[in-house]
């Protein structure tokens, strides 16, 4: 009887998905759907928060007052994205504290791209253009994802991300029109960020275990390889405006496919970085844990103060 009931609920659930009706927090949903979303949304939130570190690395060295202000605002936007996403995940029955613990213990992942270092000012441009560009490619379809709170958070996030991407491109454009040293800085950053950005779409479709189910549930709308191709096609054109090149000798327009062909991806590097062996994995996590631990006394003071205020209010009412 109970089994039949669950099957019925699952049918109703899938029907709603198929009819493009959003799933909301109080609706029944399969456990696996809930778990997949918690994993994906929290991973996304963690990526925003860890992503503040490589860019924050250049706030105190930004080369002009305007760039400094823009960069602070950008990193601050990422903190805001982290907030909306943690809130969206909380509607699925997990607390922010629990998610943060999972990040710090290594149980939850974040985007591997942030395990690469930002070595020059041009990296701030390259992150905006390539990393935010790849993120947008992944995220725009999420504005139509089946889970309501996630989709709504993504609408807001995507607007800001596309602004960031333009800012990043503009940083590179300025460098590409600058002195020889600035041009070299620009090309060097593109060389280092290109392949990690291409890898941001995740393993190829045949090696991506979650894709099929996530597509059925309309959490995901395009496969990793479809999105990756779209990204390569766009960047291969945009890099011409910069008068720079992408570091891929196999990159070539394929008339028949109507797409750019590109060289083999170094999946060994991809899995190594995910597995903890990227250049900055340990530093990034250590920086997050340090901020959290250094802030513990502040959060405790704030709760202790709030509790005292509440007691005073109660006493006043009594």
């Amino acid at each position: 009887m109970e089994k039949n009931g669950t099957i019925q609920l699952e049918t109703i659930f899938q029907d709603r998905i198929d009819q493009e009706i959003r799933i909301e927090p109080k609706d029944w949903m399969p456990d696996k759907y809930r778990q997949t979303l918690i994993r994906q949304i929290s991973q996304h939130a963690h990526s925003e928060i860890v992503g503040m570190l490589p860019e924050g690395n250049w706030i105190t060295r930004a080369p002009s007052l305007k760039r400094k202000a823009t960069l602070i605002a950008k990193v601050q936007d990422e903190a805001g994205h982290g907030l909306y996403l943690y809130s969206a995940a909380e509607t699925l029955g997990i607390s922010r504290a629990e998610m943060i613990n999972q990040l710090h213990s290594g149980k939850a992942k974040y985007s591997s791209i942030f395990n690469y270092p930002t070595l020059t000012w041009a990296d701030i441009g390259a992150i905006g253009w390539l990393v935010d560009g790849a993120a947008i490619m992944n995220q725009v379809p999420l504005c139509r994802t089946s889970y309501g709170p996630y989709a709504r958070a993504m609408v807001r996030i995507c607007k800001e991300e596309s602004f960031h991407q333009r800012q990043g491109f503009e940083i590179l454009l300025t460098l590409s029109r600058g002195t020889d040293a600035q041009k070299a800085m620009c090309q060097d950053a593109i060389n280092r960020w290109w392949w990690p950005s291409v890898m941001m779409f995740g393993p190829s479709d045949e090696a991506s275990p979650h894709t099929a189910q996530s597509m059925r549930w309309k959490i995901k709308r395009f496969t990793n390889d479809e999105l990756r191709q779209k990204f390569v096609d766009i960047c291969a054109e945009q890099v011409k405006i910069l008068e720079m090149h992408l570091p891929d000798p196999d990159l070539k327009w394929n008339e028949k496919r109507g797409h750019y062909d590109f060289g083999p991806i170094n999946w060994d590097e991809f899995w190594q970085v995910i597995g903890g062996n990227g250049p900055c994995n340990k530093e990034r996590l250590a920086a997050r844990i340090k901020a959290h631990e250094d802030g513990a006394w502040v959060r405790e003071a704030a709760s202790a103060f709030a509790a005292k205020q509440q007691q005073k209010q109660k006493a006043a009412v009594a």
Partner: peptide, 19 residues
Amino acid sequence: NSEWTGHGPNLEQDIAISN
């Protein structure tokens, strides 16, 4: 104050001090 950006005691205060 911008040295706190990304390192604040919680997200809300990270945003506040960056502001």
